[in-house]
Design a protein around this nucleic acid. Structure first.
Length: 254
DNA sequence: ATGGCTACGATCCGTAGA
């Protein structure tokens, strides 16, 4: 089965691409971020007509997450318990016997800014929550836009990005703290092409120059990591007219 | 050169993204 994550940057704008992609790729479970849609306006019927169950937690203009599954979605839960946050960034559900956590981690804007502090604090809450989730759910996947490039090889120009937001050491340490819980970065379980990225700036012909970052990830519990047979980035969607600035990441699980 | 797009909700510009 395929488990995918994609930051769509507006579910409304990207809906036709999403439906085409679902029909072509047929992932079993899909995590979406930056839906930018109030729940009342979420295109539930269109996605259901495409053969998917869907759970969503959104707000106007910003953030917003959703989980799609070809089979039933159960035990849907929004947000990180014990972490009061107005921003809709987390959604969990069980599908195909997997506990799936869809996350849209804060961007952080600039190192040292208020939003950067919020980002680091938010990662602490995420880590504390996931520690318990891992104990409760041996088959746990955490998929989404983490807004952190884990290592220099995940950055097109490490010198230019040295210490910058998305690549700074405190952010990398925050992401590592999730891996230290026992979660594996599924992409790095396998040999991968050099300069593999999931996000490219809309400006500066960044995609054409492959000037990107790998900031979207699928993290797997030890049991799921054992059953993972591949992980890749689907660059095709980034080439379409009016693309999201992110490409989907797809993990293959037995 | 620190910008350049894109989406949104509000107007015809500001905020945010990464």
């Amino acid at each position: 089965m395929k488990l995918a994550t994609w930051n769509v940057n507006s579910i409304k704008v990207r809906l036709p691409q999403l439906l085409d992609w679902l029909a072509a790729v047929k992932p079993s479970v899909v995590c979406l971020q930056e839906t930018k849609s109030e729940d009342a306006k979420f295109p539930r019927a269109e996605i259901e007509a495409g053969g998917y169950q869907v759970a969503f937690s959104g707000q106007k203009t910003y953030n917003g997450v959703a989980i799609l599954a070809r089979s039933a979605l159960t035990d849907v839960a929004s947000g990180i318990p014990d972490a009061a946050d107005e921003q809709k960034r987390v959604l969990a559900a069980t599908a195909e016997g997997i506990r799936v956590a869809c996350v849209y981690c804060p961007n952080g804007q600039a190192v040292g800014s208020e939003k950067y502090a919020y980002k680091l604090k938010w990662f602490e809450s995420l880590r504390d929550w996931l520690r318990g989730e891992l104990a409760r759910h041996p088959r746990l996947a955490v998929a989404g836009d983490f807004n952190v490039a884990p290592e220099d090889r995940d950055v097109h120009d490490p010198k230019a990005w040295q210490g910058a937001v998305l690549a700074s050491e405190p952010e990398r340490a925050a992401l590592r703290s999730l891996l230290e819980l026992g979660l594996a970065d599924s992409f790095r379980l396998f040999p991968q092409p050099e300069k593999s990225f999931t996000w490219w700036d809309y400006r500066m012909l960044a995609f054409r120059r492959n000037a990107g970052l790998r900031i979207d990830h699928i993290l797997l519990s030890p049991e799921l990591a054992k059953s993972c047979t591949g992980c890749s980035i689907d660059r095709a969607l980034r080439k379409l007219e009016r693309p999201s600035d992110h490409a989907p990441v797809v993990a293959e699980l037995l």
